[in-house]
């Protein structure tokens, strides 16, 4: 059996084993489902209530995607700005650090104050959560161009735009896609956060109301959905990454593709 296949089997076995252990321990110790429901109960809840949950899943998903898309735009613009200009970097970086270190949960009440409860604060929270890793990665990628290469191209008469298009941006792509994976999951966290605090729709809201009704299996069903969506987003952006910046991984099979 080849190593990659074995590795995957082990990983799958670990995940499965985790849930089996959970199930067995709950049964053996007779844990009340008000504290910790068994995975089988959670899955049953998930399927029986899918018709109710489905609109909330969609709500969370599109809120996340909009916040994420806006975050990418904002992140790329700011990252390109501070990555190409020393002055912009020195000027803007302290403010950015300050902004990014505010716990976003503290921003949600402000957003609700301005925009009311609903999808808009969630979109904005997702944006606020996810743009910073993109900024940092784009800026780093742009700043890491070799000075010799810059000399070679400048002596050919290359403009700043030539450098950006031919060297800066392609070099930044691996950093960019790596940050997308992180940013997508962050955006997701932001959305759920805002939904939990102030919203009447979305998985975060479902979990909040289920929790106040002591509907514990539904709370866990919400968690399962979140985990699944988070992993799915990560996988999607990993696939996009391999497709576009395979060169950065230097795999020997890349040359033939």
């Amino acid at each position: 059996m080849s190593y990659p296949l074995r590795r995957r089997l082990w990983a799958a076995a670990l995940i499965l084993g985790f849930f089996v252990l959970w199930e067995v321990l709950c049964l053996a110790l007779q844990v009340s489902d008000l504290i910790l429901p068994r995975p089988s109960q959670i899955l049953a809840t998930l399927f029986s209530r899918m018709d109710v949950l489905w609109p909330h899943i969609l709500q969370t998903l599109w809120t996340t995607m909009i916040g994420f898309a806006l975050g990418v735009i904002v992140g790329v613009v700011i990252g390109a700005l501070i990555g190409t200009s020393r002055i912009a970097y020195d000027t803007a970086y302290p403010l950015l650090i300050g902004f990014s270190s505010i716990p976003k949960v503290a921003v949600v009440p402000v957003l609700v104050l301005w925009f009311g409860a609903g999808p808009l604060p969630a979109v904005l929270t997702a944006l606020a959560m996810c743009f910073f890793p993109i900024v940092v990665n784009i800026a780093t990628g742009l700043a890491s161009t070799e000075p010799e290469l810059e000399d070679v191209l400048k002596s050919l008469g290359a403009s700043k735009m030539d450098l950006l298009l031919n060297v800066g941006l392609p070099r930044t792509m691996p950093f960019f896609f790596a940050s997308l994976k992180i940013a997508a999951t962050f955006a997701f966290v932001g959305t759920v956060l805002a939904e939990t605090v102030a919203s009447n729709k979305g998985i975060g809201n479902v979990m909040m109301s289920a929790s106040s009704n002591f509907d514990v299996p539904l709370v866990f069903a919400g968690l399962f959905i979140l985990a699944f969506l988070g992993v799915a987003l990560y996988v999607v952006f990993s696939l996009i990454e391999t497709r576009f910046v395979g060169w950065a991984n230097r795999k020997s099979d890349f040359a033939s593709t």
């Binding site: 070799e146 002596s155 008469g157 950065a248």
Partner: peptide, 19 residues
């Protein structure tokens, strides 16, 4: 003047673009 020339340069570091 940097823009007018078309000199070729090569350094110790080959700096070819990996992509």
């Amino acid at each position: 003047a940097a823009r007018a020339l078309r000199v070729g340069m090569a350094f110790q570091n080959p700096t070819l673009l990996p992509w």
